[in-house]
Amino acid sequence: MLFSGDFLWAAIVLFAVAIVAGVLGLRGIAGVSMEIARIFVIIFIVLAVIALIL
């Protein structure tokens, strides 16, 4: 479950939420969701590299 790509899927969903919130003018929600999406992408990349090494 850890290497199933859930982090990437969550990052994509949060990115979409950030885009919609930005269009609607909700800058606080957009910023928070983009920050969480960025962290999820970094976690996904780290886990993908670990999976390739193992």
Rank of each mutant, 00 (worst) to 15 (best):
M1T: 07
M1I: 01
M1E: 09
M1N: 11
L2V: 07
F3G: 07
F3Q: 12
S4H: 12
G5M: 14
G5C: 14
G5Y: 13
D6G: 15
D6N: 15
F7E: 13
F7T: 04
L8A: 15
W9M: 14
W9K: 15
W9Q: 14
W9Y: 12
A10V: 00
A11T: 03
A11F: 02
A11I: 04
A11G: 13
I12V: 14
V13N: 13
V13W: 14
L14G: 02
L14E: 06
L14M: 14
L14W: 03
A16N: 15
V17H: 03
V17F: 15
V17S: 09
V17T: 06
V17L: 14
A18H: 04
I19M: 11
I19C: 11
I19E: 10
I19N: 13
I19D: 12
V20F: 07
V20D: 06
V20M: 09
V20I: 11
V20E: 11
A21L: 04
A21M: 08
A21P: 08
A21I: 05
A21C: 12
A21Y: 04
A21Q: 09
A21K: 07
G22F: 00
V23G: 13
L24P: 03
L24A: 14
G25P: 02
G25H: 04
G25W: 00
L26M: 08
L26A: 10
R27A: 02
R27D: 00
R27K: 07
G28M: 03
A30K: 05
A30F: 00
G31Q: 00
V32H: 03
V32R: 00
V32F: 05
S33G: 09
S33R: 04
M34C: 05
E35Q: 02
E35N: 04
E35F: 07
A37P: 07
A37D: 04
A37T: 01
A37F: 01
A37C: 10
R38T: 09
R38N: 03
R38Q: 04
R38A: 13
R38D: 01
F40W: 01
V41K: 02
V41H: 02
V41L: 13
V41A: 12
I42C: 10
I42Q: 08
I42R: 10
I43K: 08
I43M: 05
I43L: 12
I43T: 07
I43C: 06
F44N: 12
F44Y: 14
I45Y: 06
I45A: 14
I45H: 05
V46R: 01
V46G: 02
L47P: 03
A48R: 12
A48W: 11
A48C: 10
A48M: 10
V49E: 03
I50Q: 03
I50D: 04
I50C: 03
A51P: 04
A51G: 09
A51I: 02
A51N: 13
L52F: 13
L52R: 14
L52E: 08
I53G: 10
L54A: 09
L54M: 11
